[in-house]
Amino acid sequence: MSNKIKIISGILGFILLTGCSSTKQYPSVQDQNKIAQLSQTGIHYYWHGGDLAKVEKEFFKGITLKGKYDVVENSFKEASAISPERIDLRFSIASTQIIQKKTNEALTTYKNILDIYPDSFEAGILLAAYSKQIGDMKTYSETIEILKKNNKKETQKYLNKFSRTDNIMKEKINIYPFQVEEKHAIVILGYALGKNGKMEKPLIERLKQGLALHKKNPKSPIIVSGGVQKGGITEAYVMKNWLVSNGVPSNLIYMDDQAKDTVGNAIYSTEILTKLNPENVTLVTSASHIRRGLAVFEEAAELKGLNINYSNLVYLDYETINEAQKISEDEKLVIYRDLIRTSGIWAYPGIQQ
């Protein structure tokens, strides 16, 4: 998706989620400026963190902040208090609560959104998804039934997504490289660089697995994905250089140097895959990351109308393969979170997908 289209989509999503109409009382200019300032503070701390003592003094007198996500959550809470009908701000609160594993609080926030706007499909499907993941099947079933009555077709789409993702969680993890017969591409996911752009062990190990897979499939194009800069260079840039220095032809390697997280990996790499048009793709990452990676890549492919058979190869960041095959409740929650983000429901409406 081009940056222009993403901006337009974000604006449209923002307008729809706020639920504002000409009959509503808009905040004063002063309040609008305050909301904007708080929102920018929240999303800045989401990405970068910062001085907690400073932000406590400037914005949150009387609140002790325990970490950067406390700043994010409280920024959107303060903004929401100024304009309670702005449900985009409430979605941002809930998303931050999910990040902090405050799942029950997030579910309450989604219920509050539904109290204001009962027809909000986004709030309903998020409430259902996260209720399912914590084992609250009563809330899940009741919410799904309401969603079906209001929007049967869209609800069924998400039920299909959930079913596909549940199957992905059961897939066998591969630790040994293999040969793929034809129409094959390799995607290697990045990992945050250290100081001055130095590669950390997880990234090096992922590249080693990608290199081993290349030797089995020497004609397969390779996508290296990662756009977070450290020391003025991106993950994708250093990944390509490493592969070339280890004998991979430069013309086989495509760089996605825009992705800032796993959802971005899927979105931007899939843009490249639409041009390569493979039938088979092997996703290479750490074992702890592979199920989330597969879930979002399969979703991104579906949205683009691509019929891709995904396989996996991992760097084993567990003691044993048996341990790697187990999936925790926390991991399930994060997989569903990023699946829904990839599907088009923004975590921070109008700000960050």
Rank of each mutant, 00 (worst) to 15 (best):
K332L: 12
S343D: 13
T274E: 13
Y69K: 06
I43F: 00
E182C: 10
L126G: 00
D256M: 09
I15M: 04
I7M: 06
S92C: 13
I113A: 04
Q133D: 14
K183H: 15
L38H: 03
V238P: 09
Y176G: 03
T234V: 06
A259V: 12
I188A: 04
A236M: 11
I267H: 11
K153M: 12
H48W: 11
S343G: 09
Y110M: 03
N196G: 01
R164H: 15
G135C: 10
V244Q: 12
N151P: 03
K332Y: 04
N151D: 10
E323I: 03
D119T: 05
L211P: 04
Q352V: 09
M137F: 06
T282C: 02
K138Q: 12
A185S: 12
S343T: 13
L303Y: 02
K304Y: 02
A106P: 03
D338R: 06
L243A: 07
Q229P: 10
V238E: 07
V314F: 07
G194A: 11
S83G: 05
Q325H: 14
V187P: 01
T96S: 09
T109Q: 08
G49N: 08
Q229W: 05
A81V: 07
E319Y: 11
K149I: 00
P177G: 09
P84L: 02
V180K: 12
K201V: 05
Q133H: 14
Q229H: 14
L211A: 02
I43K: 00
K102A: 01
T96A: 02
E205F: 13
I116W: 03
D330R: 15
Y69G: 01
N265R: 10
Q353M: 10
N174K: 13
I98G: 01
K61P: 00
I335Y: 03
E200A: 14
Y315H: 14
L313E: 07
G62H: 07
E105V: 04
L52A: 02
E182T: 14
Q353N: 09
K195L: 15
S250R: 11
A324F: 04
I7F: 07
A53I: 14
F178T: 14
N251C: 05
I222G: 06
E182N: 15
N196W: 11
M169S: 04
K138H: 05
M239L: 03
W242P: 00
E331M: 14
T262S: 10
I8H: 07
T41P: 01
S39T: 14
M1Y: 13
K4A: 13
Y140W: 10
E181K: 15
C20E: 09
I222Q: 04
K198Y: 08
S75K: 13
S250I: 12
T270N: 11
M169I: 13
T270I: 10
T103M: 00
I116A: 07
K230V: 03
S311C: 04
T262M: 04
D51H: 11
S92Q: 05
Y310P: 04
S328A: 02
E154D: 11
Q352A: 13
